[in-house]
């Protein structure tokens, strides 16, 4: 029997193959008539001014940082969530629960700090 994840790899391969096959098929039947205007980038019917890799607001970066913290935290909660009921069956339910309350509490303090600092505001 192949591994479970061989299926995932197979699906990924078939997905990529489908895209390539469609693009190749479409390459045979579509017209190709490039012109300088067509190949320039869109900017309100004007010649694009300057490079497009412009500076953008720092807000995106702060949200990304907070996201990483919360995403890692979520991954830590998953095994706990699966095992919580078996802990409860062995009479350790409240112990496991309080542990998670402490863990989430620390993170909530962080979220509250970011909130107070006004980082979560989008201007």
């Amino acid at each position: 029997m192949p591994s479970d994840y061989a299926y995932v790899a197979l699906f990924a391969a078939i997905g990529v193959a489908f895209i390539i096959a469609t693009l190749v098929f479409s390459w045979f039947i579509r017209p190709s008539d490039p012109s300088p205007e067509k190949l320039s980038t869109y900017e309100c019917a004007e010649e694009p001014v300057g490079p497009a890799h412009v500076q953008f607001r720092v807000g995106y970066y702060v949200f990304a940082l907070i996201f990483v913290i919360f995403d890692v935290e979520t991954v830590f909660i998953y095994p706990w969530a699966v095992l919580l009921r078996s802990f409860a069956r062995n009479g350790m339910g409240m112990f496991a629960f309080v542990e998670m309350v402490v863990f989430l509490g620390i993170l909530l303090v962080g979220l509250g700090y970011a909130w107070r600092k006004g980082v979560l505001r989008w201007e």
């Binding site: 390459w27 190709s32 497009a52």
Partner: peptide
């Protein structure tokens, strides 16, 4: 499917 496929030169 039959539309022309353009990739901007600067892309």
């Amino acid at each position: 499917l039959i539309k022309e496929d353009t990739i901007p030169v600067k892309a």
